[in-house]
């Protein structure tokens, strides 16, 4: 019996890392967009600090959502379309898997 423990460990670590990174980025976006929404009443009254806070929070929130989507898309595309044996071998070699 040849159980590939290394590969199983790789599946586990890749899954955990991708899930945590994507969730963290999306959650950061949620937090920032909530901050931006909270600053809206003050910004409408013309408070400079609130206006700055709203714009910055909104920009970084959308950036967070974008990066989160990009990480997930790259992961999906990489896996769906890299059935190329050379790519698999290169990734395998990087992680020390035959």
């Amino acid at each position: 019996m040849d159980i590939k423990w290394n590969q199983l460990l790789l599946v586990a670590s890749a899954s955990v890392v991708v899930a945590v990174v994507v969730s963290a980025l999306f959650a950061l976006g949620v937090r920032l967009i909530t901050n931006a929404q909270h600053a809206v009443p003050g910004a409408r009254k013309g408070k400079a600090a609130d206006m700055r806070k709203e714009i910055l929070s909104r920009v970084f929130a959308y950036l967070s959502f974008l990066v989160s989507a990009a990480v997930l898309s790259l992961f999906l595309l990489g896996i769906l379309f890299s059935n190329d044996k050379g790519v698999k071998a290169a990734i395998g070699a990087f992680f020390g898997i035959q």
């Binding site: 590969q7 199983l8 790789l10 899954s15 991708v18 899930a19 969730s23 992961f75 896996i79």
Partner: peptide, 16 residues
């Protein structure tokens, strides 16, 4: 959902 997707995709890539 993100965890399920990541686990399914990474395992199918490595042949599990």
């Amino acid at each position: 959902e993100i965890s399920s997707g990541a686990t399914i995709l990474s395992s199918s890539f490595l042949g599990f």
